[in-house]
Design a protein around this nucleic acid. Structure first.
Length: 430
DNA sequence: CTAGCCTTGACT
DNA sequence: AGTCAAGGCTAG
């Protein structure tokens, strides 16, 4: 140890003598060499820190973020397959190296939240500066979330993502790539909205990520539609199977007494539908006046779409009195609405059900439809509509719906909105 | 399906 | 030539 200094002095003339320092380096190098050899290539020369998704050791910058081999592969497979993932544990799973296999849904959300993006796909090396920057940002984000997150609670739910500005920034490009991948030209179906040519700022302003908004819409739909989708639906299916007859004695009642009889049921449906609309992202922050417009203009449509699946084999099993099993049969609807509107509604329900929209699509279709009001001049509502139409396009692209489907949907939707318009005119006359 | 390792090819 | 990410391959 002490000899090293004296050796240093002799080193200029004598053959190179190994100093302690140099020896130590050599030893380190040798150890590292052996260690790397032992672990083959699994130990990288460069420390990429933790995986942005699960916290495992990152093996490089994959899809834009430091990530491990597992999450890299998972993201790739997910994109390739575009399968629908579902969480069976409450949409709030902690994604750790050990638990990441448990829930694909939450892992996928963690990938997006971590900033993984197809947009970042790149071959070859990135500059040292850029690489360091990404890792620095990642470390910063990690320490920030470490300090702000209660260690007992897992990651935030996917629905809280809109509060994460960092995520939005990172996934902005992901929005764009998703939007670019949508092959349906929306403007053909929804005039004025062409998401493909939509400018970047529109994308940037759409603060919620599409996938998060989509999940939220679906979640709200499931919550709010529980009674129709389960209580009503199960009873409806039984009745339809047993060929149950509607309560024909109501046909002898006049319109007024029919409406009086079922007013509480109608009011309840209206109320739950208003609650549903208010819960939809963006609608809650509309002004009182705007919200009122939406309700007046679209409440009937919302109810119809919510209960569409109660139309079974040509009959409409929306129960007006669950205990007595009285439902809004064609006969009763005829009495209440008159034959024209009744026929229109029944034709719509028939055609609409043939389209076999999934609940997920429906949950996005409804806000898109009710925000498209042209009778009121509201920027807020307009922006909301732009976003929901984007979301709808995204949803349809995920479901790989083609143009024929879009044609049919447009045609079917027109049936109902025309019928509603006609009905409003009749109301105004009356 | 997962994830570690390998090959390919873009980039410095 | 060296580096590094994407994607392929495959045992588990």
């Amino acid at each position: 140890m002490h000899e090293s200094n004296s050796q240093l002095g002799q080193s200029n003339s004598a053959p190179a003598v190994l100093t302690d320092q140099a020896f130590k380096h050599l030893l380190d190098d040798f150890e590292t060499y052996n260690y790397n050899k032992k672990l083959k290539k699994s130990e990288p020369k460069y420390n990429f820190g933790k995986c942005n998704v699960c916290g495992d050791r990152a093996t490089g910058i994959h899809y834009g973020v430091p990530s491990c081999e597992g999450c890299k592969g998972f993201f790739k497979r997910s994109v390739e397959r575009s399968d629908e993932y579902v969480c069976y544990y409450g949409y709030n799973c902690e994604i750790t190296p050990k638990q990441r296999k448990r829930c694909k849904y939450c892992r996928w959300q963690a990938c997006l939240r971590g900033g993984m993006s197809l947009d970042s796909v790149r071959m070859g090396r990135i500059s040292r500066d850029e690489r360091d920057k990404i890792i620095r940002e990642n470390n910063k984000a990690c320490s920030a979330s470490d300090s702000s997150t209660d260690s007992a609670s897992p990651r935030s739910t996917p629905f809280a993502l809109d509060q994460n500005a960092n995520f939005e920034h990172k996934s902005k490009t992901f929005h764009q790539s998703l939007l670019n991948s949508v092959n349906i030209k929306t403007s053909n179906y929804f005039p004025g909205v062409d998401i493909i040519s939509m400018n970047q700022s529109c994308v940037e302003n759409g603060l919620l990520t599409l996938s998060v908004l989509r999940d939220k819409c679906y979640q709200i739909f499931l919550e709010c539609n529980y009674e129709f989708d389960h209580v009503h639906y199960e009873k409806a299916v039984k009745l339809a199977e047993s060929g149950g007859r509607p309560h024909e004695h109501f046909s002898s009642m006049c319109k007024k007494s029919i409406i009086e009889r079922f007013l509480p049921a109608l009011q309840k449906n209206i109320k739950t539908s208003i609650d549903y609309i208010r819960k939809l992202p963006g609608f809650g922050s509309l002004s009182h006046k705007e919200f009122e417009h939406v309700v007046i203009d679209r409440i009937f449509l919302v109810i119809t779409l919510r209960v569409a699946k109660l139309f079974i084999d040509g009959e409409f099993y929306l129960f007006l009195d669950l205990d007595e099993g009285v439902y809004f049969s064609r006969t009763i609807m005829n009495k209440a609405y008159g034959p024209n509107l009744t026929n229109d509604i029944f034709e719509f329900l028939d055609k609409f059900n043939q389209l076999k929209l999934t609940d997920q699509e429906l949950s996005v279709f409804i806000p898109a439809v009710i925000s498209s009001i042209d009778t009121v001049n509201s920027d807020e509502l307009y922006n909301l509509n732009v976003y929901y139409k984007k979301l709808l396009s995204y949803e349809f692209s995920l479901k790989k719906r083609d143009n024929t489907f879009m044609d049919k949907l447009k045609y079917t939707y027109d049936l109902l909105s025309d019928a509603m318009k006609r009905n409003r005119e009749v109301d105004l006359e009356a």
